[in-house]
Design a protein around this nucleic acid. Structure first.
Lengths: 208, 208
DNA sequence: ACACGAATTGGAACGTGTTTCTATCACGCG
DNA sequence: CGCGTGATAGAAACACGTTCCAATTCGTGT
């Protein structure tokens, strides 16, 4: 068996092995994370459970993601990168920048509210993260800002046409959105209140 | 020494006992929490350490505060109530509402940045809190909103003169402030960036 | 084919939040 | 004064994140 394995590796094996097996492990880990988070939220994402479901050893899981927070922030980052790719590839409907920004924010919010436990898990992790996760946090922030600036413009944007002020505005809007999301996740506010709050904020900030 | 204590308790002691002894325990617990948080931040606030420093049993600590998060959010709440009392008792300097709001926000921020570890502990707890702590979270939000609406008006306010829109505005500003604080606590942004971000946000929202 | 270093496994072990249990203590009441 | 009830002390036990280790397997250069 060992020899057979080594044979197959030496032929076609070399292609899918090496870093490819590692990509596969990483994917299995993130998939397991999503599945567990979707079912039971933050508390259900237990490192032993993730390792078991992903069929890796606990030590391996920790080699790939140095902590539960890193793991969940990576998952959140991936979701945001994908969302940003989807949203930024097309035109955003709406006549004013406020309308367009609200369109994407509500779309994002609806998407996350469709998976409450998953959202709770990812959001709690993001909020709890400290500076050791700064890379992931920064990446999420970049995606968020990109989504909002893109919506402000309404279509594909040349990066050079975005002013510092617009980035600052996008960051403020991102802050409000995040706070609203946290409020919803922690059961402080209901979905409609979240939407209304975002309406208020965006219309206050973008009045053109 | 022990006998002396028991004597003083049996004379004047009966008066300060009963629920008074409980108030005292509660105070000792919160004092221990502040002390530990000030030294070592969130991680240093360990329930066993709090119990020992407050001279109560672990079970008693849990009777008063059902979780570490409850404990720290209560501490944060107390700080906010005190800050709101101090700030709302006097006139806020500044010619425009934006100036006044920025004055109090920067004052608050400076105060918290003067005790980085304590701030880190309280903020992390607040961000991590779930719906079981909704009471404390709500209380903190009320204090925050009161501080901001008071600053918007510039002096003592009759509650009835505050419109819903003003409350909504105050909440948005509170959101931004909280996000900025979290960014600073988690080492994502420096103090000056935090201040600049708040400047941007408040001037965007309050342009009168 | 072989040897060596890196990655992975399986599992024990540790720290800290949380729960639980029993004995003790304090205080109001007959 | 003794009693009963609830609060507290003291300590063990459990759960989960995290660390660590020895043995094994994998991938690679020779």
């Amino acid at each position: 068996m060992t020899t057979a394995n080594q044979l197959s590796e030496s032929t076609a094996g070399t292609a899918d092995n090496g870093s490819s097996a590692q990509r596969d492990r990483r994917k299995r880990i993130l998939d397991a994370t999503y599945a567990l988070a979707k079912e039971g939220g933050f508390d259900a994402v237990q490192m032993r459970a993730v390792a078991e479901k992903a069929e890796v050893a606990l030590g391996t899981l920790y080699r790939y993601f140095p902590s539960k927070i890193h793991l969940l922030v990576s998952a959140l980052d991936q979701q945001f990168v994908e969302a940003a790719q989807r949203l930024n590839a097309r035109e955003i409907p709406g006549d004013t920048s406020a309308d367009r920004v609200l369109y994407v924010l509500k779309r994002l919010t609806r998407g996350m509210q469709g998976d409450p436990k998953l959202t709770e898990a990812l959001t709690r992790a993001f909020m709890f993260a400290d500076s050791s996760v700064s890379e992931g946090i920064h990446s999420v922030g970049m995606s968020m800002t990109a989504i909002v600036t893109h919506a402000m413009h309404g279509g594909p944007v040349d990066e050079s046409t975005i002013t510092d002020e617009q980035i600052a505005i996008a960051r403020v809007i991102g802050d409000v959105w995040l706070s609203a999301l946290v409020g919803w996740v922690t059961g402080r506010s209901k979905a409609e209140e979240t939407a209304a709050h975002m309406d208020t904020a965006v219309h206050l900030i973008l009045r053109d």
